[in-house]
């Protein structure tokens, strides 16, 4: 375990060591790593998916992808909350090594492990991908990876926190995908109800 923690911290300092050297890169990473930007984009993509389709069949696939992603995000948030309450209280890098970390984002007060941002962003992307594989899902994965990188770069997470978050996000999506199949025909009824009201 000590070897893993040591490797994790070494990788963290290698990535975070770049921070503060290139202002434009710092600005970009700060932007990508903040609490609103990526999540707003991903949620707006879901909104586009719900209403943006050319054929009715494509529309239903899109809307099921939105349901899956929304469920996955909810599940991921619950798991992260449980980790925050009952899990290990790992200090944030800037708290553990205040003199060594290049903190270019604001200091959070919740535990470092696991990363909620990584979990939620991967829940969004995987949830969509499980129902609708295409360029949009690929773009969401790309943005999620950038967010994860930005979190380490800005000094708020260790790489291991990110990996745990990614795993939680993917597992939550698989669970949401499975639940949607188990509770069928509820999703179909929901979509029918929305269709009656011209909203699906």
């Amino acid at each position: 375990m000590d070897a893993i923690i040591s490797a994790d911290e070494t990788l963290f300092f290698w990535i975070n060591g770049i921070a503060g050297k290139v202002p434009i890169l710092d600005w970009l990473m700060k932007f990508l790593g903040d609490d609103y930007f990526v999540f707003a984009i991903m949620a707006l993509i879901l909104l586009f998916l719900w209403f943006g389709f050319r054929r009715a069949v494509q529309g239903e696939t899109n809307q099921r992808a939105v349901l899956c992603a929304a469920g996955a995000v909810g599940l991921a948030a619950i798991v992260i909350h449980l980790f925050t309450v009952y899990g290990p209280d790992r200090l944030r890098p800037y708290d553990a090594y205040p003199d060594l970390v290049n903190l270019i984002a604001y200091a959070r007060t919740d535990p470092s492990f696991p990363s909620e941002s990584a979990a939620v962003s991967f829940a969004f992307a995987t949830g969509v991908w499980l129902m609708k594989r295409g360029r949009l899902a690929a773009a969401m994965f790309f943005v999620a990876v950038l967010l994860c990188l930005a979190r380490v770069y800005t000094g708020v997470h260790y790489p291991l926190d990110i990996l745990a978050g990614v795993a939680i996000g993917i597992l939550a999506s698989l669970a949401a995908f499975g639940i949607l199949r188990i509770i069928e025909p509820l999703p179909t009824w929901f979509l029918k109800l929305m269709r009656i009201h011209y909203m699906a």
Binding site: Y36, A40, L44, L47, F48, W50, F51, G52, F53, R54, G59
Partner: peptide, 21 residues
């Protein structure tokens, strides 16, 4: 925050409905 999401959502909806005709 509300105004931010509101404006962006109105924009996304117009793009989506234009795409869907």
């Amino acid at each position: 925050y509300f105004l931010f999401i509101y404006l962006a959502s109105v924009g996304v909806l117009q793009i989506a409905v234009s795409y869907s005709k």
